[in-house]
Design a protein around this nucleic acid. Structure first.
Length: 222
DNA sequence: CCTCCCTTTCCTGTTT
DNA sequence: TAAACAGGAAAGGGAG
């Protein structure tokens, strides 16, 4: 087996991710999906902006609501700000979805005071983020992931891998598998065609398109 | 212990 | 020629 020299990948990842502690500042590899939690993870008032965004994605997924239903930019705030919003604030920010969000965050605040470690965000997807969700989250965090994957057609959900091996290494890191390669990652991607999580894009290398069963990637409506 | 689901690994062949 | 793409086959492994 021949692999691209790891030094190349290391430098790609290092330049992309820097040396920040992945558990301290809006990690892409989400703490809620890994086995170890730290106390603040379950306390909404201590969430970072990224964690608020992560929570939004989760609630939308759980309720099978498309991400285009609410303007995510209205929730560009940290956990402290989120927790201070009134019911009316939620309705103003998210319309009919507002009451679902308000209910959810209220429950989280409540349950936190009784079972500090468990939160409902964690319960939903204990097996961890699936590959397509991992890819989606990279795409939705351009400021944290410059140059890994890029939208080709934002509205249609078409995207292209720019640093395929770097993404594979990152995926491997999340799965604690240092031997992950794009070759193997792409096989998993191809299985998504049948499930219509991805649609085939012919003739364009490293290009994929989200399918009807992929949720949470659409641009927010204005 | 078993089953289900989602990969992961490996492979052979094809295409760009 | 190297890198991607195509899928079959089978193993891995976590969750229930």
């Amino acid at each position: 087996m021949s692999l691209t020299p790891s030094t190349t990948l290391d430098s790609q990842l290092t330049s992309t991710w820097g040396h920040t502690n992945p558990y301290s500042d809006g990690p892409l590899v989400m703490p809620g999906y890994t086995s170890r939690l730290w106390p603040h993870d379950s306390q909404p008032q201590f969430w970072s902006k990224h964690q608020v965004w992560e929570w939004l994605q989760q609630v939308m997924d759980i309720h099978q609501i498309d991400a285009s239903s609410i303007p995510f930019q209205n929730f560009d705030m940290d956990g402290h700000q989120l927790c201070s919003l009134s019911y009316q604030d939620f309705i103003h920010a998210a319309g009919s979805v507002g009451h679902i969000l308000f209910h959810n965050i209220t429950e989280l605040k409540w349950s936190e005071s009784k079972r500090p470690i468990r939160s409902q965000v964690k319960k939903h997807n204990p097996r961890g983020t699936h590959l397509w969700e991992f890819i989606r989250d990279i795409l939705l965090n351009p400021e944290r992931n410059p140059g890994l994957i890029k939208w080709e057609d934002r509205a249609e959900g078409v995207f292209r891998f720019l640093k395929s091996e770097a993404v594979a290494q990152l995926w491997g890191k999340k799965k604690n598998n240092s031997s992950m390669t794009y070759e193997k990652l792409s096989r998993a991607m191809r299985y998504y065609y049948k499930r219509e999580i991805l649609e085939r894009v012919d003739g364009r290398r490293l290009v994929y398109k989200f399918g009807r069963n992929a949720r949470g990637w659409r641009e927010s409506e204005k």
